[in-house]
Amino acid sequence: MAQHSLSAASGGAIPAANFPDVGKADRVWHPWRWAISIFIILLMLRVVVLVATNKNLQWDVVAAHMFDPVVLRGLGMTLWLTCLAMVVGFTLGTALALFRMSSIAPLSYFALGFTWLFRSVPTLVLLIFLYNISILIPTVELAIPFGPVLWSERTNDLVTPFVAATIGLGFHKAAYMSEIIRAGLLSVDDGQKQAATALGMSSTTMLRRVILPQAMRVIIPPTGSEIISTLKLTSLVSVISMADLLYTIETIYARTFQTIPLLIVACLWYLILTSILQTGQRYVERHFGRGYRSAANHTASQE
């Protein structure tokens, strides 16, 4: 059939014997691509030159403060708060996601309400509120209802700025993480649950061994950006006089008036940490992406 139609096609513009080959087509000249590329490169160069030569940036001051022990201590606090907020956020978020999907209605509504509340209140307001919580609740008591008080503590001693920062950032993150984790859990195919159930797995074993490992693939990428956003969100705790990176920087430039170079120090540290986190995320994604066809492992996986 094919031979017949080919000889018939030779009745067209070009004789069949010397059909051309598109593989040998001339390269096409794209003037606009070149124009845009050159414009962007020039613009970027101008920015680099501006940053490098602007005396007001005082790069010597930046260099002097970059590894200042006080700044590094502030940096440590920023990292520590990021860690705590994410641990609280992930743990509480997982619990909230499971509560939300629970068949026990009040539990489900509790999770819904929690998420609603802590996503609605701005983090800055939440932090200031927690910082002043002792005005609302002067003492915290542990007591048998209508019975004797077993333990009592002044709220001011209990909710230090550090505790307020951890709770504030942690609850805020938990509200966001619960939705991310819930999306991850829902992304796992129902057949996986049926197979696990049919094998006699309890619901906790199923969650731990089958559902969560597969949900992680969906949970990791947005969690990565949540960690990065938390890192920057910690700068809010400077308003409740927690000595994080930004607060430390502020106290230094309040004394020396080198505002711009010190803010550059802070920005550089946030940039460095974000870069490290992004690289780390790639490796974690690769780990949980095993068992799935993707650009990364496609060629290696062929039998």
Partner: peptide, 8 residues
Amino acid sequence: QFNLFQHL
């Protein structure tokens, strides 16, 4: 649909 555990 087999339902093999995809991550294993």
